[in-house]
């Protein structure tokens, strides 16, 4: 599985770091795997490059996300929006080529892939008694505090009892715990469905600023037309498992 070699578009000093990394936590060095804009590299590699993705109910479909990009996914219920996100997170069996910053998915252990391509379902699952049982093994406290502030939750929210969380709090904390893994790509399935307008805006701002800070990309499933206008960015429509608008890059 270890394919050594230079990913297309990667600078020469990166070629060694391509595959043999097998840590639980994705190493930051992976960020170097795509061109640095400051070096004036003209051709930008997509952050997420999906070709001929196919599952039992989806596709084939192609999709590209650039670093910092937020694309929205819409479509009737049952059209396959969630299935697309699940396939990208590698939770459902699928075929086709999926690359993250030029690195093919098959060359990464699944654990590492799912840390970097984070799927946040519409209804997040909570299995422990307290919120902190659901957080990644290690994360930086500063990041956590920063994120808590952005979604308007106090610091001890991390120690709250799950039983007493409102659905809006669950949704905000569900997004937060995924962001603590420092993913490169966010797959958000209606992340603001249970929230009032203030908190919806907070989530939108938090995701936007995360994308800008980390040069990450997001796919955001949304039904809300107003939200679509607020968020901006490309809009992808799914109908019967296929992407309607051709995804431009």
């Amino acid at each position: 599985m270890l394919a050594f070699g230079r990913p297309p578009g990667a600078p020469f000093f990166m070629w060694r770091l391509r595959a043999p990394i097998r840590f639980f936590r994705p190493p930051r060095t992976h960020r170097l795997g795509f061109p640095d804009r400051r070096t004036g590299n003209a051709r930008m590699d997509p952050l997420l490059d999906v070709q001929q993705l196919k599952t039992a109910h989806l596709g084939p479909l192609d999709l590209r996300l650039q670093p910092g990009e937020l694309a929205q996914v819409t479509g009737a219920s049952g059209a396959g929006k969630s299935l697309l996100l699940r396939a990208l997170a590698d939770l459902d069996p699928n075929t086709g080529s999926v690359r993250l910053a030029g690195v093919p998915r098959e060359s990464m252990p699944p654990v590492q892939w799912r840390c970097q391509v984070a799927y946040v379902p519409a209804e997040t699952a909570w299995w422990g008694e307290r919120v902190d049982e659901h957080l990644p093994g290690e994360f930086s406290r500063d990041t956590a505090l920063h994120l808590l502030e952005q979604v308007a939750l106090p610091e001890d929210a991390l120690h709250w009892e799950v039983e007493r969380l409102s659905s809006g709090e669950k949704q905000r904390l569900g997004l937060l715990r995924a962001l603590l893994n420092q993913p490169r790509v966010l797959l958000l399935d209606e992340p603001t469905a249970n929230l009032d307008l203030d908190n919806t805006r907070r989530i939108e701002r938090a995701v936007r600023s995360y994308l800008a800070e980390q040069d990450a990309a997001a796919l955001w499933v949304s039904h809300d037309t107003l939200q679509r206008q607020r968020l901006g960015g490309r809009i992808l429509t799914i109908r019967e498992g296929l992407l309607e608008a051709p995804a431009w890059t």
């Binding site: 939770l91 699944p110 840390c115 699952a125 659901h134 990644p136």
Partner: peptide, 14 residues
């Protein structure tokens, strides 16, 4: 409890 399991997988659990 498949939602729990997939939730843990999505969080990067083996």
């Amino acid at each position: 409890e498949r939602r729990t399991i997939e939730g843990r997988l999505a969080m990067g659990a083996s």
